[in-house]
């Protein structure tokens, strides 16, 4: 295109946002007793001082909260920091704990149901365990796909995120946003934005009965309203990636 050659060099971007995954040790808290916690953390570190030195660490409060034990989060974080560990996030926290974590510049995450089940909690109720989520560690369970089904319309201003496939039996309004790590199926009209394969799954697809979307995207490759062929829109359509290109076709 002629416009392409005319564009100056600053179009080369200086940065890019990408998503990737790291192995980070998760610290699962079973007991709110801070002295006990500190003692056992020390013991663990003594076993492999090099491994834990300046290591990022993730705090899982789910079990502890399930047992109605109130752990002093700020004291725990301070304790970890003193031991040259860097807490980088918490999960399974209650509202109060999440708020506190944010105040301490530590992000809170929503629970992945099966991430904390790697150990039999009942057996080690009073111990503390530091899980090394090594790829070849046999205790690691890969998260199963968490599909989501929605029967109501997705209204303007609402956002939905599915860790697996997302199926919507009604429509997606203009101004709404639906995202999925897997495929997106919309059995009504798609008027809002739909982003499939948001964590890099290039094989994911979007299906809808009518395509009037503001934006469709798969793994970051997107098309906006004006770029979508008008003739496709009133019939069921699918959107997928082929050789890094977004293809929109009628079913």
């Amino acid at each position: 295109m002629s416009t392409d050659t005319e564009t100056p060099t600053y179009t080369k971007s200086a940065l890019e946002f990408k998503s990737t995954s790291f192995s980070v040790p998760i610290l699962i808290i079973f007991n709110a007793e801070l002295v006990q916690l500190e003692h056992q953390i020390e013991q663990k570190i003594a076993q492999a001082p090099e491994f834990f030195k300046n290591s990022p660490i993730f705090i899982d409060l789910q079990t502890c909260n399930h047992q109605q034990q109130k752990v002093d989060l700020s004291a725990l974080i301070k304790c970890l920091q003193n031991k040259k560990l860097f807490p980088i996030g918490i999960c399974g926290g209650n509202k109060q704990q999440n708020k506190l974590a944010l105040k301490l510049n530590i992000p809170s995450h929503t629970i992945r149901e099966n991430s904390a089940t790697t150990i039999d909690a009942s057996l080690k109720l009073n111990t503390i365990d530091i899980e090394k989520s090594d790829k070849n560690s046999s205790s690691e369970i890969t998260p199963s796909v968490e599909n989501m089904l929605i029967t109501q319309p997705i209204r303007s201003g609402q956002r939905v995120y599915a860790k697996g496939d997302l199926t919507i039996l009604s429509h997606v309004s203009a101004g709404a946003e639906v995202m999925a790590e897997g495929n997106i199926h919309v059995y009504g009209t798609l008027r809002g934005r739909a982003l499939a394969g948001v964590q890099g799954n290039i094989d994911s697809r979007i299906f809808c009965s009518k395509l009037h979307a503001e934006l469709v995207s798969i793994d970051g490759h997107y098309k906006i309203n004006g770029e979508i062929d008008k003739e496709i829109s009133s019939n069921p359509a699918q959107i997928y990636l082929q050789d890094q290109k977004l293809i929109i076709k009628n079913l």
Partner: peptide
């Protein structure tokens, strides 16, 4: 559109 938002 506003009603739709309100419904949400």
């Amino acid at each position: 559109r506003d009603s739709d938002r309100m419904l949400g």
